[in-house]
Amino acid sequence: MLEAGADPHGENSEHTTTGLNHRKLLMWAFLGSDCMFFGTLIGTYLVSKGRSLVGPYAVDVFDIPVTSVSTFVLLMSSMSMVLAYAALTRGSLKGFRIWIASTAIMGMTFLSFQVFEFYEFANHEVHFKCSTPISDLTEHERTFIDKCAGQDASHEVEEQHGLTPRTNLFGTTFFVLTGFHGAHVTLGVVWLLSLLFYSFRGGVTAKRNLDVDLAALYWHFVDVVWIVIFTVVYLFGVFPGF
């Protein structure tokens, strides 16, 4: 084979035509493929947008500040992931463990936010005062306006009206899209924790850093997908007329 096929990470015993590691190449091919996977899910979400026949809609359930926080957490987990890898390549196993643990913790935080969010949506309450001008109500809330009939202005309408995948097209496409992202994150967390435990068994070393490199690529990918989802689903989602 190629003489002295240089291995960028110095751990690989195989020599390859391009000098690139097999597994890393596979990972990138997989990520390219996964772009199509999430592209299809996001495409489905956008095609179905505005087609739901009954509420609640995005504007009723989304809580942008809360999701902004979880988005921020996931972004920062990417940073700590890259630092974990950097620490490992520098030979600092301790640094690696600290950073990878914090990455996993931030991943779990993100997941908790998602679980919380799903729970909130599923138990969404319509809540408004009859004194609220109709123009301030969302389309979905207006369908409850007859509850104000015969009531005084201070009357409050409260109605449990949750969003599930079965409720409407928005629910279906939203939960499946974000759910599959959540599944990717979950898999990532399991992977990171496996690496963390493995490092205590001596399986992760500065020389054998490819396992961490691959996990990091995967983790960053999950992060960039969320960047798109946050913009396209959340921010555009509550933007009227889009």
Binding site: T44, S48, R51, N168, G171, T172
Partner: peptide
């Protein structure tokens, strides 16, 4: 409801 016409 992905492909259910009745749901829009």
């Amino acid at each position: 409801n992905f492909f259910v016409p009745a749901a829009g």
